[in-house]
Design a protein around this nucleic acid. Structure first.
Lengths: 402, 402
DNA sequence: GTGATTTGTTGGTTCGCACAACGTATCATG
DNA sequence: CATGATACGTTGTGCGAACCAACAAATCAC
């Protein structure tokens, strides 16, 4: 019943630091974990023995004293990250440390069904894995543009793909033969930014992403991703900002995402379906070129006003230490002038706003894949020796009843 | 450096269960903690040795097998709970297990200053303690109607009392000679309901209280109270519900608490400053007596509509498993008919609302004192043998520079 | 009463971390 | 370039704390 709870925790903590910091010296580990040098040596040796890490003597010289070897992840194990979208299925292999070592974007002629997603993902993962014969793909994570039940990775609703109550993690686990976890794409964007991007180090964070299908988000509370009761937390896109506003697709009135649509911003600068970078640079160009008071300025100002109202509620409720904006909300922030930036949190209670800094998401087009990989790594980092009991949030590759 | 981290965690876990469940059998403890019978026996013995618990043979017979002794808190240690208000300072001594063993409400002729609060509290705690010579008062907690910085218990703003940037925990600790922690009253209401009231067992909870000075709240995330970066989380009262609404005292427009004031509900039933019970019974009486469409019905319906808008945002953001309403919001819920109750979460995304149940706060007029006691117990339960380092969220009774 | 069941108790075992002493590699200094 | 200071890795030992197995005790069912 025990199986070394303490040992598991410590091994996990070491491996997590190696993962998040992309390599640390043993001396760093002793300081960060407060364990004895000899204990750290032992823990690292165990992880090395089990194929997780290597030790190298390339540590940057830090001063007097005997140099400490750097502990780095061994790339013998990889995870697969999968992001099905309207016109593409994005697949990658990701190493411990969050580096994408292989990626393939499989174009689609029509929105994929779940069956097609499973089939294409499994094939593509196999192809990418074949290019890396020295490594094993040990788990997979899926970023879904929709609401996903965290318990079993079932897609409750993905309007963009036309999915509804579709099991996803289970069939994919069966097809791949490895554990698979699935979650909402904005949640995973949040996780990626928390681990390797603009959210690093924040103990309380609100991540908000403006995508083509709406505004999604993710929360970090006490340094850990916050999912809510069943996995649907973070949906600030459907907060009310105007009770006299337009009807939203969700059935409610005056939702944030109905009043701050990506499409309106894109069309203001004359684009149809721009990606994040294109939208942002077009917007910045237009803002400079256009006179103050012009239509682009107007649209930016309008969207920022509504965003400020929604953020007021979230900031007052959460008292976050960081707010990370992605997608077209990042573009908005970049396009905003000093006064507009200041007023974004200006409606929140002063004490609540005082603790919060606004940042722009840092990981660009790799964000969702890195986040999906984080999800996949979860169970492995939590129990590196794999001796523990099965993880509840993870669907194992047991044969699934049809 | 170590000092038995594991031991401390386990002792703390045992004591926490004894506290929350107000006594458990040793057999229960083994099941709840997954530790060996002999280990539990040892842990309980250590706690008994240090004066925390007693063992009794009065366990309700539960079936075959040797009966397990009940482990209960010994009342040798008490904490003080303090709640300064406009016209009264409410002081109590609370036992482990959350029972109020002594209470005194000291009436005031005018709103208290911090100095007066410290003086009156210290005197009253001493008087109550004198009535219980067999017990020691080991810590204190203060519930403040305002924003309190959790780091050091400094009151940033308590409009109702006219306090602004006033250190409170530190001078009170100096006066009482014991560690003192302070927090927002709604936070502590939330903690009380979580531990012993309508929030028991919920891993994700939103607590909302409608009081005379506005609408405050508290959050529980992952089974633990959520404070935010500096202690100001939970202020849903200042979420925007109507961008064309009235100006709130906070400076923003259309805040929930400006549109759902307790005073309006009270005056609808012809009362001036009713307490919670009076307001609720008057409201229920009026609802029955009045025709549908009458002014009381109207006010209830109006407030519920605004509340639903604010809850939409919070429920979509948090995906809570439970929502607990206190104060006049509890009265509103009691007065609501079936359709109104259903529509309270009706605007939230169906998946998010599906996980949430609405409950009415259970602890009545003892809530704030019990919550303040929970805060006081925190550090002690976390480290029953007192061997650990100082708790950062707690101000120790060291002399404070003036 | 007798057996089944559940739990407390006791002594021995194991796991895992700390600690101290020592070996080793670098930097600073003359 | 030798020496000391500093920081770190390595090794063997000790100990805290949990587990385990065997036994004793208290209840229920028949």
């Amino acid at each position: 019943m025990d199986a070394g709870v303490v040992r598991r925790r410590n091994l996990s903590a070491v491996l997590e630091l190696v993962h998040l910091r992309r390599g640390v010296t043993r001396a760093d580990l002793t300081r960060a974990l407060g364990l004895n040098r000899s204990t750290i040596g032992d823990l690292v040796a165990v992880l090395a023995e089990h194929g997780w890490v290597d030790e190298r003597d390339d540590a940057p010289r830090s001063g007097v004293g005997r140099p400490s070897p750097r502990v780095v992840a061994r790339d013998a194990r990889l995870v697969a990250a999968i992001n099905p979208e309207l016109d593409v299925i994005d697949v990658a292999l990701v190493s411990l440390g969050g580096a994408i070592v292989a990626r393939r974007r499989v174009p689609l002629s029509e929105p994929p069904t779940v069956a097609a997603t499973v089939e294409i993902s499994a094939r593509t993962v196999a192809e990418l894995a074949a290019q890396h014969p020295e490594s094993t793909v040990v788990a997979a994570g899926v970023a879904v543009p929709g609401l996903v039940r965290n318990e079993d990775g079932l897609v409750r609703l993905a309007p963009r793909l036309g999915w509804r109550e579709e099991p996803l993690a289970a069939p994919l686990a069966a097809a791949l033969g490895i554990p698979v976890a699935a979650a909402n794409d904005a949640h995973l964007g949040s996780r990626a930014e928390q681990s390797f991007g603009a959210g690093q180090g924040a103990r309380t964070m609100l991540y908000l992403n403006g995508g083509p299908s709406g505004i999604g988000g993710g929360l970090v509370v006490d340094g850990r991703p916050m999912d809510g009761a069943a996995g649907y937390a973070g949906e600030l896109g459907h907060a009310s900002v105007d009770p006299n506003g337009p009807l939203c697709a969700c059935g409610a009135i005056g939702c944030l995402e109905a009043l701050v649509p990506r499409a309106a911003l894109a069309s203001a600068v004359g684009l149809e379906h721009p990606d994040d970078d294109t939208l942002e640079s077009a917007l910045l160009t237009a803002i400079v070129a256009e006179d103050a008071g012009g239509p682009v300025h107007e649209e930016v100002a309008r969207q920022l006003r509504w965003l400020a109202i929604a953020l007021r509620g979230a900031v007052n409720l959460l008292n976050p230490e960081r707010i990370v904006l992605g997608g077209h909300l990042a573009a908005l922030w970049r396009a905003a002038d000093r006064d507009q930036r200041a007023s974004l949190l200006g409606q929140a209670l002063p004490v609540n706003a005082a603790d919060a800094t606004v940042e722009v998401a840092a990981l660009g087009g790799q964000r969702l894949l890195i986040g999906a990989a984080e999800l996949a790594w979860d169970g492995l980092i939590a129990d590196p020796l794999g001796a523990g009991e099965s993880e509840s949030a993870r669907v194992d590759a047991v044969p699934v009843a049809p």
